[in-house]
Amino acid sequence: MIQRPQAFIFDINGTMINDMEYHTKAWQRIFNEELGGNFSWDEVKAHMYGKNAEVLERVFGPQRFTDAEKEELSIAKEKRYQQEYLPQLALLPGLAAFLEQAYQQQIPMAIASAAITFNIDFVLDNLNIRHYFKAIVSADDVLLSKPHPETFLKAAQLMNIDPVNCLVFEDVPKGAEAALNADMSAVVLTTTHQKEEFNHLNNILHFSNDFTDPFYSNLLTDKTLMQ
């Protein structure tokens, strides 16, 4: 049994919205059409974590682009992603009600994402959910990306909550690993990765496709949770 969390920390992409297919598609087109690559869908998907500059470095090596070129490619990719995804932009089923209930119960909540501020603003403002969050940590706010715990630790610090009392919502193994490294439990949304891909982690409380699972209503009512 663990005590009910005092605060919630959300990744965005693949966790609050089911958009990772659109990120992968945008990168694949840039890699292949603009940068002369020949990458398959699965090859691109394997790199879909961390900062945009780190994605470019993992795929093309650290010497291929200048910092200015990485920034330019990053913005170009995000503009392409936003244009294609905007008509589909929506919270995962059940999440709108969960956020509202947590907000009414005055449970502190934060965004902690490897996305740049440009993309976080795109989600929060188009869905009108910014008011739910006491803290927002983006790729622009940290030096070290997930699985390093800096992103989640900074979110906890901004909320003034002990990390061990925070519950993280994630969708990728590297993100759940970052939660573990921050001494936080995690819930995994299986939008992009399967349950067995998280077998090496011992901090996962629950897996679900979306937020309609009864686990989430219990999370807001029960004083303790089964681990």
Rank of each mutant, 00 (worst) to 15 (best):
K134H: 14
G50P: 08
D125V: 06
A76Q: 14
A179Y: 09
N119Y: 05
D210G: 02
P149A: 10
K70Y: 06
A96N: 01
I136E: 01
L56A: 11
F39W: 15
L225R: 04
L89T: 12
M226P: 07
S74P: 09
E69N: 04
D67H: 13
Q82G: 12
V142T: 14
P5S: 10
L127E: 00
L143G: 11
M16G: 00
T24H: 00
Q28C: 01
Q106A: 13
D162F: 11
F122D: 01
L92R: 03
D11L: 01
S40N: 09
R64Q: 13
S113F: 07
E78L: 05
L92C: 12
T66I: 11
H206C: 03
E21K: 03
E69C: 09
F215W: 09
A156E: 09
H23V: 01
V55F: 08
A156Y: 06
N218Y: 09
M109R: 14
W41N: 02
W41D: 01
E100F: 03
K77F: 02
P5A: 06
A90S: 07
Q194Y: 08
N52Y: 02
N126K: 13
P147M: 11
V44I: 01
M16K: 04
I9Y: 05
F198I: 11
E71N: 13
D222R: 13
K195N: 13
A135G: 04
M159D: 11
N52V: 05
L144T: 10
I136R: 06
A114W: 00
A115D: 00
A76S: 13
N203V: 09
I161H: 11
G14Y: 06
D11P: 06
Y22N: 01
E170T: 08
A179H: 08
N18S: 12
F60R: 02
V168N: 10
A7H: 09
M48I: 00
I9C: 07
Q157M: 05
H148L: 07
A97D: 15
K223S: 13
K51T: 11
L92V: 04
Y81F: 15
T221W: 06
T221E: 09
I9V: 14
Q227H: 12
E69I: 03
L143S: 13
N160C: 07
N18F: 00
K77Y: 07
K146W: 11
L99E: 02
D171G: 02
P87R: 09
I12H: 05
Q6N: 08
R58N: 03
A68H: 08
P173W: 06
V164M: 12
K70A: 02
A97T: 15
T24Q: 03
G175C: 10
L205W: 12
A112P: 03
H47M: 10
D11Y: 06
S185G: 07
L167E: 11
S217Q: 15
